[in-house]
């Protein structure tokens, strides 16, 4: 048979996600965090862990984990029973014994409760008998000027432009508009720019996080759109990323559903239209 016709599932941005990683099962991590509240992870098996914030009782969660290179992991879980949906995402860097933690929450903005907040903290992995590293993962502008095309699944590509420390811009092949014309409500926006952060993990590896905040403010709830917080662990030596999306989706009937999924894509250099690159960010003065 022609396996082009293989009855595969319908994928959105999950198809080219690399397989989940179970490397960390049986391991225990103590993260010394810069904001003064340390965290501990006890990876029980390939899908369950216990986490605790210093001074609190351990809580058990379902987690998932992907690798960006042999020693760098992105691990995510949603906190069960939280009053407002909360996600914890860690970049665990075993090579440098460093960690970046991203705490996300829905409902912090009373006017736009679907916007997912992002709180970053940096720290080091404590290992008995070893010194505690003083270096940290850090916010970085090194990636500014990067244009890249991400291949998510058959016939679906996005093109990103990373141009300032707090925004990024997106389009799809053959379109030069700054509006994100995926056929939905987001095309009503004056531009595709969204809030973002860039964190250097190591040479040629970055954690890129975006929040679909302008989209939520301007068109949220219309045209089947609700917003997400997306965290991409990007490896520019390999030209791929692995990551996760945390937020809300909307069905055609207007009902919403929680999104908490892994994703991944393969990249390639791309030349983007100068008009796309130079268009002023319509959301900033």
């Amino acid at each position: 048979m022609n396996l082009k016709d293989y009855p595969r599932k319908e994928y959105n941005i999950q198809q080219l996600t690399q397989p989940p990683c179970f490397d960390l099962q049986g391991e225990r991590f103590y993260f010394v965090m810069d904001d003064g509240y340390d965290y501990e992870l006890n990876i029980l098996d390939h899908e369950n862990l216990e986490w605790s914030k210093e001074g609190s009782a351990p809580k058990r969660e379902f987690y998932r984990c992907l690798k960006s290179d042999d020693t760098t992991y992105i691990l995510h879980y949603e906190v069960k029973g939280a009053e407002q949906r909360t996600g914890h995402t860690y970049v665990i860097d075993r090579e440098q014994r460093l960690v970046t933690m991203l705490r996300c929450k829905l409902g912090e903005n009373p006017k736009f409760p679907m916007i997912v907040s992002s709180h970053f903290d940096f720290g080091a992995i404590q290992v008995e008998g070893e010194y505690l590293p003083f270096k940290r993962h850090c916010y970085s502008n090194e990636i500014m000027g990067t244009t890249v095309q991400w291949h998510w699944r058959s016939n679906f590509f996005t093109q990103h432009y990373y141009y300032t420390s707090d925004h990024y811009r997106i389009t799809v092949p053959s379109r030069i508009s700054t509006a994100m014309e995926f056929g939905g409500a987001t095309s009503k926006k004056p531009g595709s720019d969204e809030w973002s952060r860039y964190i250097k993990i190591k040479e040629n590896m970055f954690l890129f996080v975006l929040v679909e905040a302008y989209s939520e403010r301007l068109v949220g709830g219309a045209g089947n759109f609700r917003s997400n917080n997306m965290a991409f662990l990007q490896n520019y030596d390999r030209m791929y990323h692995v990551g996760r999306s945390f937020g809300t989706g909307m069905r055609p009937d207007g009902s919403s559903f929680p999104i908490n999924m892994l994703f991944g894509a393969f990249g390639q250099p791309v030349e983007l239209d100068p008009a796309f690159l130079s268009y002023p960010n319509p959301f900033t003065v």
Binding site: E142, T146, N204, D237, P269
Partner: peptide, 11 residues
């Protein structure tokens, strides 16, 4: 700096 690249490092 544009970090996108071809396969120079790993082929």
């Amino acid at each position: 700096m544009n970090l996108s690249n071809d396969s120079a490092k790993y082929g």
